[in-house]
């Protein structure tokens, strides 16, 4: 069999199985012995599918620099167990903590940097504040408001329906809850999202934080983070907002990936 670049596996979070890919530290010319391992938290639903290629590339490049890397699918997302309507925000935050432990076990390192995009970033920040002790955190275009997130999804859904060549019979909620862009959002989950926000972080999420934006105004969040003990780096980069792009285009947000790699290598050598 061809040489393995990564190890796909399932691990437990609570009673359920999550899918993960472990990238062992590379042994190439750019590789160095690192004291920190990196956890990549995938976003959810359509954003999970659209970001997969970029995440895979980022994990490969970081492992090439010598970092052990684990990326994983949240509960009921991607290849992980169960169907999406069973998820909850509390559950997804707990998944981040479970994946962190799994990475510590596999890598043998206690120092961890978490990288998350969109809801992956939001859940990572929440888990970081709740559990503490995180070395680094990358918030890549985090979702600030659950209510706005759902509103944007609904808008994208309506836009998508207008492009159908054969009009759908119904776009109203079905027995399993509201269908937004092909994923179910039952009333219980919608209520949870309505209450969710990243503006109220009650403490320092990590020693160092990179807040990476691609056009969204994060001045309020940056101000909040600066008021904690966190050392904050705020960068704006151009390039495709990959979570909004058609995945069949195969776009890679090179500038964002480069910014993350550089920051991780400089901050956690």
């Amino acid at each position: 069999m061809a040489q393995q670049e990564l190890e796909p596996f399932f691990f437990r979070s609570g009673q359920e199985q999550l899918f993960g890919c472990y990238h062992a530290p590379g042994r190439g010319p750019k590789s160095a012995a690192r004291k920190t391992a990196v956890l990549l938290v995938h976003p959810m639903d359509q954003e999970n599918i659209r970001s997969h290629r970029a995440y895979r590339r980022l994990a490969t490049q970081l492992s090439g620099l010598g970092y052990p890397v684990l990326r994983f699918d949240l509960y009921a997302c991607g290849d992980s167990e169960d169907e999406c309507e069973l998820g909850s925000i509390h559950r997804w935050v707990e998944d981040v903590a479970a994946a962190l432990k799994e990475l510590q076990r596999r890598s043998g390192l206690s120092s961890i940097c978490i990288i998350g995009m969109r809801l992956g970033a939001t859940f990572a920040a929440t888990a970081a504040v709740e559990h503490g002790g995180l070395r680094g955190l990358v918030l890549w275009e985090p979702v600030l408001s659950g209510a706005l997130f759902i509103e944007d999804l609904r808008s994208a859904h309506d836009k998508m329906i207008r492009t159908f060549l054969s009009k759908p019979r119904s776009t109203t909620p079905d027995e399993a809850g509201l269908d937004i862009m092909g994923f179910p959002f039952p009333d219980r989950l919608l209520a949870e999202f309505k209450e969710m926000g990243l503006g109220q972080l009650e403490g320092s999420p990590a020693e160092d934080v990179l807040l990476l934006d691609q056009g969204t105004d994060y001045s309020a969040l940056a101000g909040g983070l600066e008021a904690t003990e966190t050392r904050l780096t705020h960068k704006s980069v151009a390039g495709p907002r990959i979570w909004e792009e058609d995945p069949s285009a195969g776009l890679i947000p090179q500038e964002a990936l480069k910014a993350i790699e550089s920051w991780v290598a400089e901050t956690m050598p």
Binding site: I49, G78, D79, C84, M181, G182, F183, P247, S248
Partner: peptide, 8 residues
């Protein structure tokens, strides 16, 4: 699209 397919 990776193996989970469109909309999973």
């Amino acid at each position: 699209l990776h193996r989970i397919g469109p909309s999973r």
